[in-house]
Design a protein around this nucleic acid. Structure first.
Lengths: 165, 165
DNA sequence: TTTAACGTTTGAAAAATTCCAAACGGTCAT
DNA sequence: ATGACCGTTTGGAATTTTTCAAACGTTAAA
């Protein structure tokens, strides 16, 4: 591996770690994702642990979470090999976005529920300000959901074009 | 305060804490935001600390962060009062979204930088796969930025309509 | 000049998260 | 069967984050 490549690899891993952490995720998740994005071919658990200077334990757990979130998947490996190999999920960006969309939907649901509850409590007492705020919140997230869906379909068609080339 | 109101207040605080945590933020941030969304009038540092059963220290620091992020602001308070009062920033949702947009932009920038670096390393060695992935990543975040901007302007006009009523 | 009422900072404690080494269970080759 | 090689699970250690109590600086009244 050339020096230039090695530098890029290091930076990729470092920056993805930071980015993941800034989104409230585990830094190691970002490291693994970066490593797999970088790697031209699938890597085994041991490869990954060694490359990141970690033990198998946490890497195994992180791989589980990454597969749950559909950011990473098991690669096919020859029948005579008992080792598992991992690679980046080709739709990693789309899937990451879908995960985020779930969080948005949680908020829409939360706002709706709270709005209803406030509405019934309003009979008893003046809670108009709070009610309006819940309405605003629900409107906000509903609109956000709409835009996210638009984005998703536009991205999918955009990506299909990219793949063709 | 009626029982119904009290239950709603508790739930609001609890759920906002969870939501903030799920976005990688401090739970207490969510609690404070919920409390201020609930409160019909501004609250002092001591009010907030007492209502949440915390000491002034962490609440003071959280309020600082919330003001940095423009989710909370100091309310006007009479000249003869040395106490500070805090209230929800009226544009809290818009601002929260703007903060998120900054993270997106970081990712766009990151992808662009890495793409460039890979491009120059490519002369030396075959890194086509990695280059294509960086291109995909950059495309993804650029498209996302575009949609986020669209959302923002639509939300602002939507909200203006809400305020008029 | 003191005293009192604030918000902030700070150093250490408490809690939560991350991490490892070792144990474990499963599968295949011998 | 036995041993070798996997990935996962687990208990506790290490690290990071959150929290508090106390000290501090500032401001205004006494």
């Amino acid at each position: 591996m050339t020096n230039a490549e090695e530098r890029i690899r290091k930076e990729l891993i470092q920056r993805f770690g930071d980015a993941y952490k800034s989104f409230g995720l585990n830094k190691l998740m970002g490291h693994v994702v970066a490593l797999l994005i970088y790697a031209p071919e699938p890597l085994s658990l041991t490869d990954i642990a060694k490359a990141l200077g970690r033990s198998k334990g946490p890497v195994s757990q992180i791989l589980r979470r990454l597969r749950d979130h559909k950011l990473v998947r098991k690669a096919w490996s020859p029948e005579d090999n008992r080792k598992d190999f991992y690679e980046i999920e080709p739709e990693i960006f789309e899937n990451a976005f879908r995960n985020n969309l779930e969080l948005i939907k949680n908020n829409t649901r939360l706002a709706g529920q709270l709005k209803e509850k406030v509405a019934s409590a309003k009979k008893v007492n003046k809670m108009d300000v709070l009610f309006n705020r819940m309405v605003e919140m629900e409107t906000f997230y509903k609109l956000m959901e709409k835009h996210h869906r638009n984005f998703l379909s536009e991205w999918i068609s955009e990506r299909n074009k990219m793949i063709k080339n």
